[in-house]
């Protein structure tokens, strides 16, 4: 039963993506919608991303500072650890998990609401490819904007680590900066952007899928929104593991 449901949903998701990849009826309309979504997803999420990123950096730095406290490992390693752990894992994964909650639920509710109010039927009857018009701009906007948010998140997390360790005097400014500048592997930044792009695609396309096929009333819309967030989160973690296996 569970496998049947999974296969049915997976097949329908692939078919929806296939319909969504189509030549736009009017390029300018798709462009306008993409820009609107970039604003909604990107600018609309900056504050929450800044907030969580500061705390990610602070917590990471404080906990590693505590663990390294009595060891022979030089304390400047805190900056190094905060930098790498933020770039490889925390910034892309935590940011996208949070965005799956904020953006994903919003997209599922927006498209689901349009389905319930017959807006999607109205567009279909006008001759609009609704899968393309409603989904493609959102996915493109997210894939362009979320990696930028993740880069901001990594930067702010490193600042958060600095604030949490240098200001209270756990380590010095010089040590933290030395750590940040030590053993840098540029490929980790590439991995961060790969993760961010893949997670952005997953969280938007999956959320749009749940909204697009919603049936029933407000309870079903709420369930679709919840499913969008839960499934997006599980897929983000699954693909986090797959990318880690493939790229490290």
């Amino acid at each position: 039963m569970l496998i049947d449901t999974f296969l049915y949903n997976f097949g329908q998701y692939i078919l929806l993506l296939k319909s969504a990849i189509a030549k736009p009826e009017r390029f300018s309309m798709y462009y306008k919608e993409t820009v609107r979504q970039m604003d909604a997803i990107g600018v609309g999420s900056v504050f929450i991303v800044l907030l969580i990123s500061v705390f990610i950096g602070m917590v990471t730095a404080v906990q590693f500072a505590d663990q390294l406290g009595d060891s022979f490992i030089p304390s400047y390693y805190i900056g190094y650890i905060v930098r790498d752990i933020t770039i490889i894992e925390m910034a892309p994964t935590i940011t996208c998990l949070v965005l799956a909650g904020k953006v994903g639920s919003n997209l599922a509710a927006e498209i689901g609401g349009m389905r319930q109010k017959e807006h999607i039927d109205a567009m279909e009857i006008m001759g609009v490819n609704t899968a393309a018009y409603l989904i493609m701009p959102k996915v493109i906007a997210a894939v362009l904007v979320i990696p930028l948010l993740v880069a901001i998140s990594a930067f702010v997390s490193i600042i958060g680590g600095y604030l949490a360790t240098v200001l209270p005097g756990s380590i010095s400014h010089t040590e933290y900066v030395l750590g940040l500048r030590s053993f840098f592997v540029p490929r980790y930044v590439f991995i961060m952007f790969v993760k961010a792009g893949v997670f952005a695609f997953l969280l938007t396309s999956v959320s749009c899928y749940f909204g697009y096929y919603v049936k029933g009333g407000s309870i079903e819309l709420g369930e679709a929104s919840t499913s969008a967030v839960v499934v997006s989160n599980v897929l983000i973690l699954l693909f986090d593991f797959i990318i880690a296996l493939l790229l490290t």
């Binding site: 807006h119 039927d121 109205a122 279909e124 006008m126 001759g127």
Partner: peptide, 12 residues
């Protein structure tokens, strides 16, 4: 469908 117009029950 581009030759079709539709008035929905809920207006849409």
């Amino acid at each position: 469908r581009m030759k079709v117009g539709m008035l929905f029950q809920g207006n849409a």
